[in-house]
Design a protein around this nucleic acid. Sequence first.
DNA 1: CGTAATAGTGCGTTAAAATGCACTATTGAC
DNA 2: GTCAATAGTGCATTTTAACGCACTATTACG
Lengths: 71, 71
Amino acid sequence: MHPQQLIEIIKARRDMLNVTQEMLADLSGVGLRTLKQFESGKGNPTLETLQKLGNALGMELTFTVKDVTKK
Amino acid sequence: MHPQQLIEIIKARRDMLNVTQEMLADLSGVGLRTLKQFESGKGNPTLETLQKLGNALGMELTFTVKDVTKK
DNA sequence: CGTAATAGTGCGTTAAAATGCACTATTGAC
DNA sequence: GTCAATAGTGCATTTTAACGCACTATTACG
């Protein structure tokens, strides 16, 4: 998953839940400025930030071995 | 996936591939100090760091909606 | 035991993430 | 078009990730 995909997934999830950046910032405990920066593609968030956002959005970060059987 | 699990998964993968911290640092482009810090549970790595490690280990970071059907 | 390889830590520096505030840009409803 | 809600940006500050170096701790093997 490339960084840009990650952003799109999070934005899509946020939109689906009808949550604004401001609401998500409050819910997740991530600063609004940080969230704005991240969603606009400027950021390199820390694991902690990603997990906070995940918690608020009902999403989960996973780290798995790449499937090399599919091409 | 909690931070500690993430660490364990990465260490396990590294051990399975018989790669030392030093080798992984070189292969991934992540500083050795950074990797040591992370694996010893002291860190809060950035997305970029995690992706570098993932690339070197043949692993992938994903962000998905939590499955709430399972308990 | 010694010793070699590997992992973890203390200390310091540099670069950048996280943050708030104020502002501008965009979008959508009317 | 106006106006309101939301998103994005510029600037500054504080915190901390990333990093190297040197050291200590641990582990494995003879």
